[in-house]
């Protein structure tokens, strides 16, 4: 066997080993990402359940928990960002991503319900936005709408934005969609219970909010 052929065969083996190592490293990194997401979800799940339980226990004076509910919403937003990034890395068909999205959606619905309960009990007037999008390539304006909502959420921390993948197969989400009569015309928004569809620009979206609601919240910037 010539030196060239021998070296080429060894190099082929080295190349395959290198590629396998890279594949393993990428897989490991993604697994760590999923593990990180799972840990965050577990923590939020515990916090939500705790808040919910406290709310039930302290029916006479539940309003002291309003602050911690706001903290939870911020943690949920961070989790949503991470989940969206992981979805971009792993693919929207990835089984782990789907499972995490389902859990995330459940947490969002739970937080949404707690927020409504607190509002009713404490007489507050939070502005909540249910935002329905699709990653199936059938929503040309969803990226723009998502970014505009991120801007509003970051600018007005007390604004509660809950994002849902309309196509996610989840019983609680289907119930939420049917209760709010959300049609499959995306992007769709339910702002304080009132549904609207489509996105043109930020200014038009802002007009959908109750008059003065954005101005009365505390601006972050």
């Amino acid at each position: 066997m010539s030196l060239t052929l021998r070296n080429a065969l060894i190099a082929l083996g080295v190349t395959i080993a290198l590629i396998a190592t890279v594949a393993y490293a990428v897989q490991y990194l993604n697994q760590q990402r999923v593990a990180d997401l799972t840990a965050i979800e577990d923590q939020i799940s515990i916090d939500t359940l705790s808040l919910d339980t406290q709310f039930s226990l302290l029916e006479a004076a539940p309003c002291a928990n309003a602050a911690s509910s706001t903290d939870l919403t911020g943690a949920l937003a961070d989790l949503g960002d991470r989940l969206a990034y992981a979805e971009g890395q792993l693919g929207s068909e990835n089984a782990q991503v789907l499972r995490l999205k389902e859990q995330y959606s459940l947490l969002e619905i739970r937080d949404y319900l707690v927020t409504k309960q607190l509002a009713a009990a404490c007489g507050t007037h939070p502005v909540t936005v249910l935002y329905f999008y699709s990653n199936a390539g059938d929503c040309a304006d969803c990226a723009k709408a998502g970014y505009a909502l991120s801007y509003l959420r970051d600018t007005y921390p007390k604004l509660r934005v809950y994002s849902f993948d309309y196509n996610l197969s989840l019983g609680a989400l289907s119930t939420l969609i049917s209760l709010d009569h959300v049609q499959n015309t995306l992007p769709a928004f339910v702002i304080n219970g009132k549904a609207s569809y489509g996105f043109t620009d930020l200014a038009t979206l802002e007009k959908q909010f109750p008059k003065g609601s954005l101005a009365t919240t505390t601006a972050a910037k």
Binding site: V22, R82, Y85, Y147
Partner: peptide, 27 residues
Amino acid sequence: VRSGIPFSYAWVPPVSHFDWFYLPGTF
């Protein structure tokens, strides 16, 4: 995506700390 969003939010990078989670670890 950024059209119509205030410049200071859309185009000025936020001050953030390193987070390994967002490392672009694709094949």
